[in-house]
Design a protein around this nucleic acid. Sequence first.
DNA 1: ATATCGATTATCT
DNA 2: GATAATCGATATG
Length: 235
Amino acid sequence: MGSAIKTSGLKPLAALSPRPPGQRPGAARYELLSRSFFNRDPRVISPELLGKVLVRRQGRKLLVGRIVEVEAYLGADDPAAHSYAGRTERNAILFGPPGYVYVYFIYGNHYCLNVSCLPDGTPGGILFRAVEPLLGIEEMARARDVEVNSPRDLPKLTSGPGRLAEAFGITRERDNGKDFTSRKSDLFVASDGFPASNVLVTPRIGITKAVDHPYRYIIAGNPFVSGPRNLINLR
DNA sequence: ATATCGATTATCT
DNA sequence: GATAATCGATATG
């Protein structure tokens, strides 16, 4: 506590995350993603999720981040997935209908945000690994207790699954089970018309099982992608 | 720049 | 009792 947070005047790295021509962040029109969008294989959804925006309504404030990195997790075929060993109380959301928020707590410290995929009864999900902050940067900096003095500091806010969860105030207690496709929800995903480009597929990171599968999807070159810069191994 | 390590707790064996 | 879909700090080149 107590460390000053200076964000006044800071803008998102607009050059690196272009919007539709002439559109400013506050003017974005968000189009919700549908239930059927998530009712598919997470490996098909993942690249389409890149470039979409994650939105948190916080009272009057809006927290918005451009999705730049996700990972797909499957069911019985995927030893790295939480659903691999079958349904439990913790992972129940992954076995439910598509488009719902799955949050888990890890390493005694961090929350991670996922969305359920595939039809009711078939497990699968997508882990949100990094977003580029667009709106609510001051609020994110406060939530992270990070000092942002230059654009170079911005990745500290939302680059990494634990970081983005903290920046958006995401916890299991607060958010697990929410409908990701409802505007009534205070946490949802939407399209603002920005088309994802330069999508690259790599092996997933931070796991010890099934490390060979290329199920990590990133916007190549985007500075908010997490992990070592060299971990952009093509497969 | 890369490598290693400690923190801290819910969940599962 | 061990592990974990992580992070931040420290050490070393």
